[in-house]
Design a protein around this nucleic acid. Sequence first.
DNA 1: CATCTGATG
DNA 2: CATCAGATG
Lengths: 316, 316
Amino acid sequence: SSATASAHVGVSEGVDLSVNQDEPWTIFAHKKPNDGWIVYNPKTMRPPPLSKDTKHVKLLSWNVNGLRALLKSKKLCIQQLADREDFDVLCLQETKLQEKDVEEIKESLHGYENSFWTCSVSKLGYSGAAIISRIKPLSIRYGLGIPDHDTEGRLVTVEFDDFYLLCGYVPNSGDGLRRLTYRITEWDPSLGNHMKELEKLKPVVLTGDLNCAHEEIDIYNPAGNKRSAGFTEEERESFETNFLNKGFVDTFRKQHPGVVGYTYWGYRHGARKTNKGWRLDYFLVSECIADNVHDSYILPDVDGSDHSPIGLVLKL
Amino acid sequence: SSATASAHVGVSEGVDLSVNQDEPWTIFAHKKPNDGWIVYNPKTMRPPPLSKDTKHVKLLSWNVNGLRALLKSKKLCIQQLADREDFDVLCLQETKLQEKDVEEIKESLHGYENSFWTCSVSKLGYSGAAIISRIKPLSIRYGLGIPDHDTEGRLVTVEFDDFYLLCGYVPNSGDGLRRLTYRITEWDPSLGNHMKELEKLKPVVLTGDLNCAHEEIDIYNPAGNKRSAGFTEEERESFETNFLNKGFVDTFRKQHPGVVGYTYWGYRHGARKTNKGWRLDYFLVSECIADNVHDSYILPDVDGSDHSPIGLVLKL
DNA sequence: CATCTGATG
DNA sequence: CATCAGATG
């Protein structure tokens, strides 16, 4: 089909782009309303792997939408993801764990002896983030250090030799945008400022579900979602003000300008099959290491959650 | 095996009675602690069907533990139960429906154009009862006529030519027996008195989940359940005082003295496979029609709920 | 170990 | 249309 023909990289030519049935992991850009954007094939778009001689680290990040359910589903246990992707560090968001669940899961992570978990204490089974690492960090920190923002288990920071890694789950603005103000006037600025503070010491990498599709290219139906949580003007501006304009680089967009690459598809209406998605998950890095990014990518063939994992290969 | 050998009717002879794997619908009495009770085989224990010349009615009753889930499971839609059992009337308890769910389900009941539903208005998705009938009743009544006891959708009464039929779901006494007092001092007496009032006009049939295992023979582990909701001394006494001593006859027990026949098995620990059950579901009838009962029976092979249906064939 | 709701996304 | 919790049985 024409869709298959354009699977590599090229400008959509008015064909009815959709998922390639032969290679279901291949996500095409859609024809409308984003006509003319570049088709993104996550497999062929990836650069060749770095040789062992080039010192680098491989980071993955995944909003798992409930880690217990994911592990029960057996769609993909963390060990299988490790075998397949050979990551050094895995960042998780929306683990929805309670503190009592953590120990059992920690013990199942063979090869990743360093893992750091934070859970919501204000609402059980809500939010939650973790960093699982093969590399032992120099220091670990939970939350922003602001008690008011630290009851929901939304941030884990680890310090490695060459950079700080933050795994964050930015608050969803919610139905009726009831939490929009909190999000843009409190959480986002606090997180941005915290990153600037850390950056005085070492370069910073922020990954996670930032709950914002930055530009029109980052969402399936921009016109219809102008007042939807995650695509309001306020959130998009906040994303720029608090992160991009502070010097943090959206690594996927830098590597793939004009390319559609979603990381989230709502469960409703089979949105994933028809690629009606959003790009909500990011790797942002300090400007000073932006050129060290070898590859910033999406793994849309990994399911088990409404988000797919994303990856970053960073040269050190 | 000896278990199979004793499958018909006989006294347990110290064999380890359990479910017959060849006929999984066959429920045996257990060896301990009820050694010596009669083994009940629900298939062979049933009398031959009445001829068409003998005027009679066939009633079924079933605590479905959530009707929407049952219908979704496709284990047994009501149409299939109708095809198999050819009942005239089906009484349901714990439908857990909301009023908004009723219309759609009513329309799916081909051949049973008369159906009467009551739902809890105080707690959504809780309790709920219904009578589904091929025969058009002379009158219908919901609840006891006592507003305080009628917010939970626990009782539907229909009047036929020859008897009143009550479909009831007696309140569970709950964890910690927190509702025991309400149950035995308010609900049970009100229901018993209501039945006596109706009986002045016509014979009465009460069916449903009466949430009480009357005697030791009616529960797998009597010693261990003396303070469990459904087997407390208080509930058992209330069952006698308010129903049996008022002249209503436990039709299953009359037909099968000394026979174990459970109608409920908790979902936990595979209680149904090992027949660790309770008899909580009954057909009680006015003394004046007790001899009209042709058959009072259990259908333990019907699953889809933690209760099995029970049946009554009543000569008119 | 099931059902349900209601919150959340 | 998923996850979770908590109530209920």
